[in-house]
């Protein structure tokens, strides 16, 4: 718990209270965010590759769509698993409340899944690349709000001062670019040439750098703006309960991949690039988890 100036003056101690609720949104929500990042991220990367390296990326249309479908379904499954009343999920569609980011997100994610299946149909059954690419543009446009809506949801949590829309939305987009490029590096295998993988490496490295800068900005400057943010960040400072996990995440998701990408470019090693991709994917889960949990540790009343 953060030491506030007021404590020294008043020596105020809670001597009797009820038990407070523990973690409200647990690791299931971390998996939700992590899987969604990959699900939309690979679509962004397919769009990029088809424009920058059409020859190499042509054969990735169907595999990428399948990977996106799988991860979006992992996202949906864990969303459902986190509900205390999963069998009432259908209420979102029949009693929608449009001021809620959850509702808007659920509707958009459903449309996104529909479009992904259309992409799969166009690439696997109809084998119509022109129609696929045309549809892909619309899927990419929809993938942007699908990626961002969780930031909106976190920002609607008035109680959690740490989660602000501008930074969270940037983090969501960078997470999608990071995990999407990492997944495509691994998915590309022998189908993608080194130049295409280099492009993915640049996206991975830059998104890692931007994410790291954002986290460090919050870490250093966040406490200067709000007492609650200062108190929450105490959980990842000093001997805080999430300090180790926070820094582990920053190193595995951002710092090591950045270094490895530089190394892979100088040594022209695809294996080092793959290692960077694996680390980024694993580290992203840690980073997301810490940022999800720490605001929930603070007593609200």
């Amino acid at each position: 718990m953060a030491a506030h100036e007021i404590l020294a003056a008043t020596n105020a101690v809670v001597t009797l209270d009820v038990a407070l609720p523990g973690i409200v949104w647990p690791w299931l929500v971390t998996v939700n965010m992590w899987a969604k990042s990959i699900g939309t991220g690979v679509i962004f990367m397919l769009f990029l590759l088809l424009r920058k390296h059409p020859e190499a990326a042509g054969s990735l249309r169907f595999p990428t769509t399948v990977v996106s479908i799988i991860f979006i379904h992992i996202f949906l499954l864990f969303t459902l698993a986190d509900l205390h009343q999963p069998f009432k999920m259908w209420h979102i569609f029949f009693y929608p409340h449009l001021t809620s980011a959850i509702t808007v997100g659920a509707w958009m994610a459903t449309a996104f899944v529909g479009l992904l299946f259309l992409l799969a149909f166009l690439s696997f059954i109809k084998k119509d690349n022109a129609a696929f690419d045309k549809t892909l543009t619309w899927v990419v446009i929809l993938a942007i709000p699908v990626t961002l809506y969780t930031a909106g949801l976190m920002s609607q949590c008035t109680a959690r001062e740490l989660w602000q829309m501008p930074t969270e939305s940037a983090q969501m987009i960078f997470a999608a670019l990071l995990s999407g490029s990492a997944a495509m590096i691994l998915l590309g295998g022998s189908k993608l040439d080194y130049e295409a993988k280099k492009t993915l490496g640049v996206v991975l490295g830059l998104s890692a750098m931007m994410s790291f800068i954002l986290y460090m900005s919050e870490y250093v400057f966040g406490p200067m703006k709000a007492e609650e943010v200062a108190a929450v960040l105490e959980y990842i400072k000093g001997d805080g309960p999430y300090t180790v996990m926070f820094w582990l995440g920053q190193w595995i998701a951002y710092l090591l991949p950045m270094l490895l990408i530089v190394l892979s470019r100088t040594s022209k090693s695809e294996n080092i690039l793959k290692l960077a991709a694996i680390l980024a994917l694993a580290g992203l889960w840690l980073v997301k988890h810490v940022w999800l949990i720490i605001p929930q540790l603070l007593p609200m009343s």
Binding site: W25, D82, Q85, P86, H91, C157, T158, M300
Partner: peptide, 11 residues
């Protein structure tokens, strides 16, 4: 539906 969004939102 028990999404706990309200629990998270209430300051």
């Amino acid at each position: 539906i028990g999404c706990a969004g309200c629990v998270m939102a209430c300051p």
